[in-house]
Amino acid sequence: SPTARQLAGWSEPPIRDEDRLWRIVDVLVEIGAQRGVSAAQVALAWLLGRPAVSSLVIGGRTETQFRDNIAAASLMLSGEERERLDAVSRPPLLYPYWHQQLTAKDRFGAADLVIDRSGI
């Protein structure tokens, strides 16, 4: 929207990969349209189901936005929907993680597997 902070000259937070951002938004919008809910609700429901996420901070400018955010707690995404969101949002592996994938994946412990974002 033309009133969005990023479009109104607000430079924080910086967008490091705009194409990646829009690919994620497109999947959130598609899943929301299929479910009859907002993309924001899909994003919050997805985050609530992520490993190591125990809570979210939500907010809104209007009561409608706030109610929509709260409804995310009741939205159960399918495995396929979660997989789509995981795949489109997976950050590229940086060193040493790409190196570990190549040399030590067979020795990963439980803690390593939680942070493993390679999808391999």
Rank of each mutant, 00 (worst) to 15 (best):
S89G: 06
I58D: 00
Q6N: 12
G59W: 09
Q41H: 01
I115Q: 13
T64G: 05
G60A: 07
D112G: 10
A87D: 09
A4E: 07
A72F: 02
N69R: 01
R61N: 09
E18I: 08
I70L: 15
V37W: 00
L93W: 04
A40L: 00
I58W: 04
A33R: 15
R82C: 05
G60H: 07
Q65D: 00
A111M: 14
D86W: 05
D19H: 13
R50E: 06
D68F: 05
G109S: 09
G36R: 03
P2V: 04
A43F: 00
L93D: 10
D68T: 02
R84V: 09
P96N: 08
S54Q: 12
A110S: 15
A33T: 12
L102E: 09
E83S: 15
R117A: 11
M76S: 14
F66C: 01
R50H: 10
Q34W: 03
E18D: 13
Y95M: 08
S74P: 01
I15C: 07
A4H: 08
P2L: 11
S89C: 07
G79Q: 11
D116F: 04
F66Q: 01
Q34S: 11
A73T: 10
A40G: 13
L77P: 03
S54L: 13
P96C: 07
I15Y: 07
R16E: 13
W22I: 02
Q100N: 14
I115N: 07
Q100Y: 13
L48N: 04
T103P: 00
G119P: 04
L21G: 03
A33V: 12
E30L: 07
A52P: 02
E30K: 05
G109F: 06
P2H: 06
L94K: 11
A87R: 14
W46M: 05
D116H: 08
I120G: 14
F66W: 03
N69I: 01
A43N: 03
I70H: 07
L75S: 08
A33Q: 15
S89I: 06
E63D: 09
R107G: 03
V25H: 08
E83R: 13
R67Q: 12
A4N: 14
I120W: 15
A72R: 00
Q6S: 10
R107A: 14
L94D: 10
I31G: 01
A33C: 11
A104D: 14
I31T: 09
S78K: 01
A71F: 00
S78R: 03
P13H: 06
L7S: 06
W10I: 08
R20Q: 08
G79D: 15
I24V: 08
I15M: 04
S11P: 04
S1V: 04
R16S: 13
A111G: 10
S38K: 02
I120E: 14
R61H: 13
P92T: 09
P96T: 10
S89M: 02
E30W: 02
L44Y: 00
G79I: 03
V27C: 00
Q101S: 04
G36L: 11
I24W: 06
S55V: 09
D17Q: 10
S11G: 08
W98S: 12
P51T: 05
T103R: 14
D68M: 02
R20Y: 00
I24K: 04
D19R: 15
I58K: 02
A40C: 04
A43R: 01
R67E: 06
L21T: 00
W10V: 13
A111C: 11
